[in-house]
Design a binder for these strands. Sequence first.
DNA 1: TACCAGGATGTTG
DNA 2: CAACATCATGGT
Length: 301
Amino acid sequence: MTSFTIPVDLFSWEESIDYLNRNPLECTHLVKNHRVYKLLELPDASLALLQLSQKGEQLVVETNKQVAVEMQQWLKAYVSNWFDLRRDLSTFYKQMEQDALLAPLCVRYEGLRIVQIPDLFEALCWAIIGQQINLTFAYKLRLRLVELYGESEEIEGQALYTFPNPVRIAGIQPEDLRPYQFSQRKAEYIIGIAQAIIEGRLDQQQLATQSFEEAHRNLVNLRGVGNWTANYVLMKTYGHCQAFPIEDVGLHNGIKLLWEHDRKPTLEELKVLAKSWEGWEAYATFYIWHHLMKWEREAKF
DNA sequence: TACCAGGATGTTG
DNA sequence: CAACATCATGGT
């Protein structure tokens, strides 16, 4: 057992776990009793069960096994990335003060940080799975992929999975996924990206050293990755705050909800709205997603 | 039943 | 280059 803490400031644990708890088909983490459990594959390929909780101005990280000091540093960086803890949120809030759409959300969800997908392969797969289908179906497809090819352990009476690694996915065929209602194309995209990673043509660390524009070019060069997916990944894995998935239907629906007009914005209207978000488009988008998610959840009951 | 879904690609005019 | 067609099926 290893335990350490990360100091946090201007951070809402409750909003963060509320976001993590947004879908019951989620299987790579578990939210229970204000704690988050996650099964993680460490750099040395061993599995560790993480348990996160909040205690005052600290985020408490506990593992189910003894972890060496250098691995603790890796875990600390992982968790900091996961919840984007190093971001200076006050700059975002200041810029949004005069924004009609965002100002109220910044007050209501103060301390919410973008919940990242620290692993590039996972982020790409999730984005591709979600292309042009409803989220409920997307979660079902993701669950099947994870059940088929992820590692699992039981915690709190529930199975937790690691997201499959690219080595595993690179060895399968599209036909292996077709019975699980993956389209032929999506299966090809995901397997192709797994192969690009294991062949070294796509490298998470390398993209991390590149500028937003350069990383964007390299991402859209992958088959199955267009502008929306590239921006989604630049936002959710690399924390580029200027990443803006402007084609996103969820964003459009969120604005429809916040707007007085009972319709979705056109692309041109969205560009005008987003002018005041410059440099913080990813955060504006995430807050709108979060708001829409909470509204839809309310509407069901 | 028709239309929409956290789009991308390939073809056509 | 812009406008279509196609993918592929669940959810509402």
